[in-house]
Design a protein around this nucleic acid. Structure first.
Lengths: 336, 336
DNA sequence: TTGAAAGCGCTAACAC
DNA sequence: GTGTTAGCGCTTTCAA
C-alpha cells in the first residue's frame, strides 16, 4: 500500500481512458453503461477514493463550506454546527469548522486559512469583524453568511436576530411579571459583543420604566457554571434586596441556580433568575429560570441553505436576511 | 476583485520570480533578507493568501487533521474537539471535523471523504469500525488515533480508557457505598458501543456480588434530558423499591434528577443516581449524582499530540496507547 | 541565492 | 461515447 491509487490506476484496471474513468466516477451522462460499470467495479476493486485536492484545484472550486464559531464550550455553537451539518448532508458539500475563541485576530487567521482552501462559501458568527477581515471576506468573492446577529449591516447575507431587542424584550417580560429590583451579571463582555448588545437592550427597557439597575457584576473570560455561581454570590451578597438577576447567558444562570439552591434562596419567589439561550439542560430544573430560547439549530440550517442556494444559483445570496427571533419563557415566573 | 491573486502576482509585484516568492512566503532559508521583505510586503499589499489546494497537491500532503466524532449533541465530543484544536494551535495544522451520528455507514463515507483531502492524520472515535472502514484506514497509510475507548485492539494508536472497567468501577463504588437494589437505564445502546460496554462492566460487578439487576429500561435514539426523564419515570414506576439507577450517561441522569426533584423522590437518600462523563452542568445541582468524570479534553489533546509527533517524526505513531482513566465521584453519596 | 522546468491528480474544453 | 490537450497554482528538482 505504498503509492496512493490514482485515476490512472482505475482507468488502467477498467481498460478505458483517464477521462472516461473521471466522468464515470462523477456520474456524468454520456458515458456508456458498460464503461460506468467497469470503472465503478475497478475503483471498488483497487480501493480508489479520489483526491479532492486535485479535483478542486482543477475545477477551481472546492465543495467545502467554512464555518467559523467563537467557541465550542458554549453548547449553542455546536448546535449551530449540527444544523449546518444536517443541511449539508447529501449535498456533496462538507463543512469545515474553525474556532476563534472570541479573538478577532484569531478570527482573521482562521478565515484566511479557510479561504486558502477555496471554500464554496463561508458561515461566520456575528457582524463584528476587523477591517482586515472584512476586506478578506469581500475580496474572496464567495457567498458569506453572518449568523446569530442582525443588529447592524451584514457583509452579505445574515441569519439571526437582534440581541439588543432580545435583551429589551426579556426585560419587558420580567417587568410585566412584576419585577422591579434588577441586577445584571455578565462575563466576557469585552469580547462577546452579542452579550453586550443584550445588556444594552436590557438597560434600555429599565430606563424606559424609570427602573434603576441596582447591581452589576462582571467577570472576564468565557462563561461557565463556576463563574455564574461566583457572580451570583457576589451579587446577592452585595445586594440582597434584588428581585431579579439577568445573566448574560444560561451557563451563568445555571451557576446562579446552583448558588441559590445551596444557600436556600427561593427562586423565583425571592429572586428570579433570567438568562439567555434556552439550554435543554436547564429547563425542568427547580426554580426554573426565565430565558430567551434561541433557534440556533435552525440558524445553522438556514445559513447553510443560503449558501447552497447561492452556489447552485448565480453565486449570489442576494443579501438575504433571515430573522429567527428567540422565544421568551419565564420559567417558574410564568403566570398560569 | 475578480481573479484571485496567485503567487505569480506576488512575484510580479515584488519583482522576483515565482520561486523566490514561494520560498520567502514559506520562510525557507537561503533567501536574501531583501527578497523576503519585498515579497512579504507585496503579498500584504495585494492581499494574497495562498492556495492550500495547490500547495498540498504539489507537496502531496495537506496540513489537515481529520477528526471524526459520533455526535455534537453530547457535550463530550465538542470538548474532545476543543482539545484537538488547542493542541493544534500554532502548528500550522488545521482540524477538519466530521460527525457520524453513530452510523457506521456514515462513518465510512465521512472517512472516505476526509481521506480524499489527503490529511496528515486522522483522529476517530472508538475502536469499532466496519471492515470496509478499517481497510480504508489501513490503506491510507497515515497516522491514525482512535479515541475514547481502549477495550480492544486499536488499528494504530489509541487514547482513552476501558469502558467496561469504567462501568465495573462505578458499580463497585456504588456497592461499597451501600447500594444493593440496582436499575439500569440506557439509550442508543445498539449504536453506542461504548455505552454498551459500560453496561457490561456494570453487570459484571453486580454478578460478582450476587446482586440482581432489578430493573432495566432502554430507549432508542440519542440520549437527552427528555429521554432520561422518561426512563426514570418508567423505572421508578415499575420498580419503586430501587436504591440506585445507573444511567448510560449524564444527559440521561440529568433527566433523572429532574424527574426525582419534581416527584419529590429524595436523591440520593431514597434512590441514588449514577451517570457517566462528569458534565460541568450537573455538578453542584441538588441531589448530586455519582459519575465517572472523563478527561475528554485531555484525550483530544493527547490524540492530536500523537499525530503531530508522528508527522514530524518518521510518520509512525509507534502504536502508542495512552490511558486516561475517568475519576469516579459519588456526588452526594460521598461519605465525608 | 535564484530561476526554469516538470510535475502533483484531476477536470474543462475541445477534438475525434 | 471517448480520448487528447491544456492547464488549475503551487512545490520539487536541478541547473545556473
Amino acid at each position: 500500500m505504498k503509492k496512493r491509487k490514482t485515476l490512472v490506476d482505475v482507468a488502467a484496471a477498467a481498460g478505458v481512458s483517464k477521462m472516461t474513468a473521471s466522468r464515470a466516477l462523477r456520474g456524468e451522462k454520456d458515458v456508456s453503461k458498460e464503461s460506468v460499470e467497469r470503472v465503478l467495479a475497478a475503483a471498488r476493486e483497487i480501493g480508489y477514493y479520489g483526491n479532492h485536492l486535485a479535483a478542486s484545484l482543477s475545477s477551481s472550486s472546492a465543495e467545502l463550506i467554512g464555518v467559523v464559531v467563537p467557541a465550542l464550550a458554549n453548547v449553542v455553537f455546536p448546535e449551530v454546527m449540527s444544523g449546518v451539518s444536517d443541511a449539508l448532508r447529501g449535498t456533496g458539500f462538507q463543512p469545515v469548522f474553525g474556532v476563534t475563541e472570541y479573538d478577532t485576530e484569531k478570527e482573521y487567521e482562521i478565515i484566511r486559512s479557510m479561504l486558502s482552501w477555496r471554500p464554496a462559501g463561508l458561515i461566520i458568527t456575528g457582524l463584528e469583524q476587523t477591517e482586515a477581515t472584512r476586506k478578506l471576506l469581500i475580496g474572496a468573492d464567495i457567498p458569506i453568511v453572518q449568523t446569530m446577529d442582525c443588529d447592524g449591516t451584514p457583509l452579505d447575507a445574515c441569519v439571526g436576530f437582534s440581541h439588543t431587542k432580545a435583551g429589551y424584550d426579556i426585560a419587558m417580560a420580567l417587568i410585566a411579571a412584576g419585577r422591579t429590583r434588577f441586577g445584571y451579571a455578565g462575563s466576557n463582555l469585552d469580547k462577546d459583543t452579542r452579550g453586550a448588545k443584550r445588556r444594552e437592550g436590557f438597560l434600555k427597557a429599565l430606563q424606559e420604566h424609570d427602573l434603576p439597575l441596582i447591581g452589576e457584576v462582571t467577570a472576564p473570560g468565557l462563561s461557565s457554571i463556576q463563574t455564574g455561581r461566583k457572580l451570583a454570590e457576589e451579587m446577592l451578597t452585595g445586594h440582597p434586596d434584588l428581585d431579579c438577576i439577568y445573566f448574560s447567558n444560561d451557563d451563568l444562570a445555571a451557576g446562579g441556580i446552583c448558588y441559590c439552591l445551596e444557600q436556600g434562596v427561593a427562586v423565583p419567589d425571592q429572586v428570579a433568575l433570567a438568562g439567555f439561550n434556552g439550554l435543554d439542560i436547564i429547563e425542568g430544573f427547580p426554580g426554573r429560570i426565565a430565558t430567551s430560547r434561541t433557534a440556533r439549530r435552525a440558524i445553522g440550517e438556514a445559513a447553510a441553505g443560503i449558501i447552497l442556494e447561492a452556489v447552485k444559483g448565480n453565486g449570489s445570496t442576494g443579501g438575504q436576511r433571515i430573522i429567527l427571533e428567540p422565544s421568551i419563557t419565564l420559567g417558574a415566573l410564568e403566570k398560569n
